[in-house]
Design a protein around this nucleic acid. Structure first.
Length: 438
DNA sequence: TCTGGGGTCCTAGGACCC
DNA sequence: TCTGGGGTCCTAGGACCC
């Protein structure tokens, strides 16, 4: 039996823990750059503000109803997330941290020693609320996909008091019949449209399609798994996370700029910043990457620009995997120059590190470089430098030590810097931002 | 004027290897 | 003129998730 715990309106709930004045009002949290709505309070949902709505479209509505919009504060949400996950890990055999606000639980054997599953789930919710201030809902079922269904309905119907268990055929059928197929985990916009066209409206109808049909129309084996899981056949197990964190298979860092950029050197300032940050994450995870991607994106809402909006270039690092910022920067520059075109107006850039593995798994030497000058040798000497940079940035704040390309003249604004006008303090992770009570 | 960021998995063709 | 089978890697792209 699987459980799925999900924080209600997670980002808004995090903000409300420290700003009770936000209670009872429409509140939204915005994406980076104050672009889109990414979290909404119940009051904001009631106003009809859609998930992902551009802020400029809802700004007036929100103001009229005396609501609040906040820039996203990932330092706060990340820390609150760790607190929630830690509470869960204390109380169940295994936890898979699925996203910043969601975790799958292994509920094996919980009934036998401590009451019914439902009462256990309620106790879990009370504990998380009491210890972190975050309200949650819990769904329980024999497959992850059904646990997601249960969680969804637990949120939708308040009379369920935040908990729903789907462990019998009749309960399962009742639930699937009221859930739109589009709300099933794994059914996105494209598939939802296709299902509608075929007269498949509910999750129940989706669970009745044939294997051949699912494989043909829903992306092969992926779609078939969704159908099987809706029928109660588990296709995926729990991937337990060690100490509440998950080792990633790829690391990405990308940002929208505060303004359009055209100059190569401005773009390089952004890309080198993101690449340094990605390399730092890579080292924190104790791994090396052997694939590097750089991408540039143009304004996809500008009708004068024909698609594709994003150009990317990927390089398999010729001298093997690395987590050395300086080497990644050298390759990153080449990739950027490969995709950069003058006279284009770019809105966003990013980097991806892929092919991650722990260090020391047979390094590839370059045939044409003398061994003493090979990248891996100079790099070994640079490991202490990287460790030092990481330590400085951790102690004195991100960007204390950064690539020269990312440094602007004193008093000059950073050309690529995004907007974050309504950011709340880092209440739980920065000493000077501690909440004062008095 | 203003439209996010960071992930996962799968497919598929071509290069290359034995 | 005939032209294998199975494997991995590389690269790009497409779908999905929160």
């Amino acid at each position: 039996m699987y459980g799925l715990v999900d924080g209600n309106n997670f980002y808004v709930s995090c903000e409300r823990v420290f700003q009770p004045r936000l209670d009872g009002r429409p509140v939204v949290v915005l994406s980076n750059n104050d672009g889109n709505v990414v979290s909404r309070s119940a009051e904001a949902k009631a106003l009809g503000i859609a998930m992902g709505a551009p802020y400029f479209q809802v700004r007036e509505l929100l103001r009229y109803h005396q609501g609040h919009a906040l820039s996203s504060n990932y330092a706060l949400y990340g820390d609150m997330s760790r607190r929630v996950m830690a509470r869960l890990a204390e109380q169940v055999p295994a936890v898979e941290v699925y996203s910043i606000d969601e975790a799958f639980l292994d509920l094996h054997g919980l009934t036998t020693w401590c009451g019914t599953l439902d009462s256990r789930a309620q106790a879990l919710r009370r504990d998380v609320l009491a210890c972190t201030g975050i309200p949650t809902c819990v769904g329980m079922a024999p497959t992850k996909t059904l646990a997601k269904v249960a969680n969804r309905l637990a949120k939708k119907y308040p009379e369920l008091q935040g908990v729903l268990r789907l462990d019998t055929d009749s309960r399962r059928e009742r639930a699937l019949r009221v859930l739109p197929a589009a709300d099933v985990w794994g059914i996105g916009r494209q598939y939802a449209q296709l299902l509608t066209a075929h007269g498949i409206g509910t999750a129940w109808a989706l669970s009745q399609v044939s294997e051949v049909w699912a494989r043909k129309h829903l992306g092969g084996v992926v779609g078939w798994r969704v159908v099987q899981e809706l029928r109660g056949q588990p296709c995926q197990g729990l991937q337990a996370s060690e100490d509440g964190t998950l080792a990633r298979q790829s690391i990405r860092c990308s940002r929208s700029f505060g303004q359009r950029l055209t100059a190569l050197e401005d773009l390089w300032g952004a890309v080198s910043t993101y690449l340094s940050r990605a390399a730092e994450k890579l080292r924190a995870q104790g791994e090396q990457a052997h694939l590097l991607t750089v991408f540039l994106t143009q304004d996809r809402y500008d009708t004068r620009v024909p698609p594709p909006y994003t150009r990317s270039a990927t390089l398999t690092l010729p001298s093997g995997p690395t987590n050395d910022t300086l080497r990644l920067l050298a390759y990153g520059r080449r990739l950027l120059e490969r995709i950069y075109e003058p006279d284009r107006r770019y809105v966003k850039a990013g980097v991806v590190l892929d092919g991650l593995e722990p260090p020391g798994r047979g390094q590839q030497l370059d045939l044409f470089t003398p061994a003493a000058a090979s990248p891996t040798v100079t790099e070994d000497r640079r490991q202490p430098l990287m460790a030092c940079v990481d330590a400085l940035n951790q102690r004195f704040g991100r960007g204390t030590v950064r690539p020269a390309a990312a440094v602007t003249a004193v008093g000059q604004p950073t050309p690529w810097q995004g907007n974050a006008q309504y950011r709340s303090p880092a209440y739980t992770t920065r000493l000077t931002d501690l909440l004062l009570v008095g």
